[in-house]
């Protein structure tokens, strides 16, 4: 199977998932071409994380199928082509005795094989991944001593070190300060532009990500929208009402730069207008 020849990074067909007889995901169909940068948005409890776990084979859907680069996820074994940054990544035991170098090398462990240790080549790869996220000054520091934003960068490096073609990030900016969030998105955009890595960014933070992504998908149990960012902007209000209902304050977060204040105000007025109507 040659990954390079596959046009689709991900192909999700009729995927449904239920938990304790409650439907979490209903008939999701989605084709994600290689090279796209998808923002997957939806309110809390909309099934975003569940969908991600199905994509990675961590959960088995009740119906439907997932193909990664043309291979059914159940048979998929080229895991070094997939990078994953979990929502819970920085909820590890902060006393864990591991350096930045050790944590990032874990991204290669599945690839290297048994009885083998890191060779010079691998160590170089680890160093490059750490430089890529700008953490080279902390390479021998204990991971628990770093700030939330720095830890997040380390986890990105761990996902990048195996040179993945697809990078999936589940709420990677939770607990990261606003300034770091912007830098972080810029870094992701660069990965997408320069290295052509397909990115799936799961977030409930629509405002912050929309200027970086190429495509948007809106999820709340069902897939309400999937298209490019321009189409999304045009239909944004409709989408939001359909997904969140009325009174939800979409952009309830503090951004310290003007652009997002603008969005914030706009949406607040919007909310008021709807209430009046």
């Amino acid at each position: 199977m040659d990954i390079k020849k596959q046009p689709l990074a991900l192909n999700i067909q009729h995927l449904s998932f239920s938990y304790h007889n409650q439907n979490v995901l209903e008939d999701i169909n989605m084709q994600i071409p290689k090279g796209s940068f998808l923002g997957l948005v939806g309110p809390n409890g909309s099934g975003k994380s569940t969908l991600v776990k199905c994509l990675l084979g961590l959960l088995s859907p009740n119906a439907g199928s997932v193909q990664l680069f043309g291979v059914d996820v159940k048979k998929f074994n080229r895991w070094s082509d997939i990078g994953f940054v979990s929502q819970k990544a920085n909820s590890f035991n902060s006393g864990f005795p591991a350096t930045v170098f050790e944590v990032v090398s874990m991204g290669l462990y599945g690839k290297i094989g048994l009885f083998r240790f890191l060779k010079k080549k691998h160590k170089q790869q680890v160093r490059e991944a750490i430089e890529q996220v700008g953490m080279e000054d902390y390479i021998d520091d204990n991971i628990g001593q770093l700030s939330g934003g720095q830890q997040q960068r380390v986890f990105i490096a761990r996902a990048l070190v195996s040179n993945p073609s697809l990078l999936i990030l589940d709420e990677p900016t939770v607990g990261v300060d606003a300034k770091s969030v912007k830098n972080f998105y810029t870094m992701l955009k660069k990965l997408n532009d320069e290295q052509g890595i397909t990115l799936i960014l799961v977030t409930h933070d629509i405002g912050a990500m929309s200027e970086y992504v190429t495509d948007v998908a809106c999820l709340n149990k069902c897939l309400h929208f999937h298209g490019n960012t321009n189409t999304f902007e045009e239909n944004k209000e409709e989408m939001m009402t359909a997904m969140y209902g009325h009174e939800v304050n979409l952009l309830e977060h503090n951004h310290d730069h003007d652009h997002h204040h603008h969005h914030h105000d706009h949406d607040d007025q919007d909310g008021v207008r709807r209430e009046e109507g």
Binding site: W79, F84, F92, F96, A98, M106, Y109, G110, R158
Partner: peptide, 13 residues
């Protein structure tokens, strides 16, 4: 890898 982050370990194969 498993001791540090079981979920990641499993997605790295």
């Amino acid at each position: 890898s498993i001791s540090f982050d079981q979920e990641f370990a499993s997605t790295s194969g």
